[in-house]
Design a protein around this nucleic acid. Structure first.
Length: 710
DNA sequence: GATCCTCGAGTTCC
DNA sequence: CTCGAGGATC
């Protein structure tokens, strides 16, 4: 080996060590000038002998060329999501479940499982950044990918290489590193760095980032690594795909030994008591931390126990995130406006002095109804506490009486509709006040048209609020049937509507022309008839004619006497609503018009019967007798939550129903399976609490392929 | 009449 | 997602 080669290698290793001490350990061992001198020496050496350049050289952090797009990369092992809890009780239940499972798995005996301190947990911080996975082969960083949907992410190797604290080559630790090491961790930006970056952005007149997390996300997804290199990104490792054999806590030590930054704050604790202790400590330390966290993470420390516990859907049973309660902020309630919904419901909405909470700026929040306003004691002009419930939907928590100005206006529900002026009534025992305007009310008409066109109803793609507004404004559409008589010429008269958009919309309308009875019935917007009930009605009655000609008053009596079959879930209120809808000539005309403009749907014979008068028809029993196969999911009730890898939730629901299963919206004891995808929330927790079996999309497909549940 | 299970309806931000 | 209310069941 030549002297130059030896020198270059020594420089690379030394620079990597110094950089690690400086950036990762925050303990510089040499003056900056010395580092710079060595760096320049290596640069000069490499310039003279280009063959000495290696991919792990610190001079090679920024690759030469920007990439054209971010490549999709499949994850060798899927990147998991975590279950989560907010309350102490959630954590106690988690620990109890862990012990219970370990007992069932035969890892613990009954006496051990009863000991609340038997399980050792590794407790860590939950960073508010972006999850990435780093792949090291023979110690060399070869790939970095974002989490994506968990099974496929984006290749961000070029950008991750620019992060100073990420070693391009693993350092020799106390224990040898595996040949292939996949490190899981989080890319984030420190608060101070974020402030500085935003200052620079402002000086250059560039757009400001709303929070450190967004800044980190934007920086990591750049195409040009030179740009990312100027962004002050950091990284913390928290896991590895390979079991290293001696527990989560020690594994973090290993990772640190190999030069990877790991949590500055972690602990080995015993049982739920230890976990909650850690949580409270971190709560106190939180504001002193130099970066944002949104909670803490607990993992069963013992790797063999982790294996025994396994996974539910794509979340490990051995870990849980304990999240901090949603951030609450104060702001002024500027006004309370009234929105009118499809059914005429008047909903008070709070207009807030825009305030930054939970990662975005909130300026509106629903107040639900009059009672709610009274309960929360809010007035126009009050200072109110606002938070984002479930980290998404803004919510006014309460008014702050101490800050109440001398003059505030109490909210009074208007007696006339603010849109059409019709009378507003509030039925006894009902929480909502309603506009009685019906067709006359533009707000109701608009919402009704939107409801008709929406994806779950007749599905006119691309028809949103803006467009419906314009169509009503231009007097082109009054009732649903009018959508189907639109022409390109008429559409072109609308503002910001080009030839192409007009053609696209018309194609979508054409496609919507052939629909199903269930979609249509739902789309009509009959009170108390939602998606599910519409499906039931379409199945039972089979045709629009049957639905229209039915005397629902008679039916209600028969139903009460228990003389009906095939109309489960349809009670007196719904029947009354149907009676009133179908006896209204205006509504009947609306349906006739739809047929006239060429809207079609398949129909079949009615499938319900009065037990005494027997209206002949096939139901499931008949199917069995005629020798048809019993669908594999017959009699099983499913609930779907989260984001599935392949199917949309609607598609999954259709798939389940097509195989004889039922899909409902809430988890209960009667639920057979919870089909859970990514980011499953409260339903997953509920299922675990009730002991409902949880499956993922792959398991569902397996069930269908085998023709029976497992 | 009470209780549990479902469904319907309304909603925020980017 | 969450709340409120309709429907089924005891």
């Amino acid at each position: 080996m030549s002297a130059a080669r030896q020198r270059a290698q020594w420089l690379r290793e030394t620079l990597a060590r110094w950089s690690y001490q400086y950036h990762t350990l925050d303990e510089p061992s040499v003056p900056d000038a010395q580092y710079d001198q060595a760096y320049r020496e290596l640069q000069a050496l490499e310039a003279e002998h280009p063959d000495l350049i290696t991919p792990d050289s610190p001079t090679q952090r920024v690759g030469e060329k920007p990439v054209e797009f971010l490549k999709q990369v499949p994850h060798a092992t899927p990147m998991l999501s975590l279950g989560n809890g907010f309350e102490d009780q959630d954590i106690e239940q988690f620990d109890a479940r862990v012990r219970d499972w370990l007992l069932k798995a035969g890892v613990l005996n009954a006496a051990q499982a009863a000991d609340p301190l038997v399980v050792l947990y590794c407790a860590e911080l939950k960073y508010d950044g972006l999850a990435v996975t780093l792949r090291y082969e023979n110690g060399l960083l070869v790939q970095a990918a974002t989490r994506g949907d968990g099974s496929t992410g984006e290749d961000v190797t070029h950008n991750v290489r620019t992060i100073e604290v990420v070693p391009l080559r693993l350092l020799p630790g106390e224990r040898p590193h595996p040949e292939v090491l996949e490190v899981r961790g989080e890319v984030l930006m420190f608060n101070a760095d974020f402030e500085r970056l935003n200052q620079q952005q402002a000086e250059r007149g560039d757009k400001l980032f709303v929070n450190p997390r967004n800044a980190a996300a934007g920086s990591l997804r750049q195409l040009d690594p030179a740009l990312t290199a100027r962004r002050p990104l950091r990284f913390f490792a928290y896991g590895a795909n390979t079991k290293l054999g001696h527990g989560q806590f020690a594994m973090l030590d290993d990772l640190r030994g190999w030069g990877l930054p790991v949590s500055p704050r972690r602990a080995l604790v015993q049982g739920a008591a230890g976990l909650l202790d850690f949580y409270r400590q971190i709560q106190v330390e939180r504001k002193r931390l130099p970066f944002e966290i949104d909670g803490v993470v607990y993992k069963v420390n013992n790797e063999a126990w982790q294996d025994a516990l396994g996974f539910v859907a794509r979340a490990p049973r051995f870990a849980i995130a304990h999240k901090f309660p949603p951030q609450e902020v104060m702001t002024r309630l500027l006004d309370i406006e009234i929105q009118v919904g499809r059914t005429g419901a008047l909903t008070p909405v709070a207009r807030l002095d825009p305030v930054f909470v939970g990662g975005t700026t909130v300026s509106n929040a629903t107040l639900h109804n009059e009672d709610e306003i009274r309960r929360k004691d809010v007035h126009v002009g009050d200072m109110v506490v606002v938070r984002r419930a479930g980290d998404v939907i803004p919510e006014v928590v309460r008014a702050v009486a101490e800050f109440r100005p001398a003059q505030v206006t109490s909210f009074v529900m208007p007696t006339a509709c603010p849109v059409c002026g019709s009378e507003v009534v509030r039925e006894a025992n009902e929480a909502v006040a309603r506009c009685t305007g019906g067709f006359v009310c533009m707000a109701q008409r608009k919402q009704g048209l939107l409801h008709f066109a929406q994806r779950r109803a007749v599905m006119i793609d691309g028809l949103g609020e803006k467009l419906v507004d314009q169509l009503i404004e231009a007097n082109l559409v009054k009732a649903p049937a009018d959508f189907f008589t639109l022409s390109v010429e008429a559409l072109l008269r609308l503002e910001r509507m080009g030839q192409k958009s007009a053609e696209n919309l018309l194609a979508a309308i054409q496609a919507a022309r052939s629909t199903t009875l269930a979609r249509l019935v739902f789309g009509l917007g009959i009170r108390h008839v939602g998606e599910e009930t519409a499906r039931q009605l379409a199945l039972a009655f089979g045709s629009m004619k049957a639905l229209r000609e039915q005397d629902y008053t008679v039916l209600a009596q028969a139903k009460e006497a228990g003389q009906t079959q095939g109309l489960e879930g349809i009670g007196p209120e719904i029947l009354a609503s149907l009676q009133s809808y179908f006896s209204d000539p205006r509504q009947c005309k609306l349906i006739d018009d739809l047929r006239e403009v060429g809207v079609t749907w398949p129909e079949h014979e009615a499938r319900w019967k009065l037990e005494t008068l027997t209206q002949e028809n096939a139901d499931v029993d008949d199917l069995v007798q005629t020798g048809m196969a019993i669908p594999p999911l017959q009699g099983l009730s499913f609930v779907i939550t989260g984001t599935l890898p392949e199917l949309s939730r609607d598609q999954a629901a259709d798939l389940i129903r097509a195989h004889g299963g039922q899909v409902s919206s809430a988890v209960s004891k009667k639920t057979a399976y919870l089909l859970a995808g990514e980011a499953a929330g409260s339903k997953l927790a509920k299922a675990q609490e009730l002991g409902v079996k949880v499956i993922d999309e792959a398991a569902l497909r397996e069930m269908l392929a085998q023709g029976k549940p497992d």
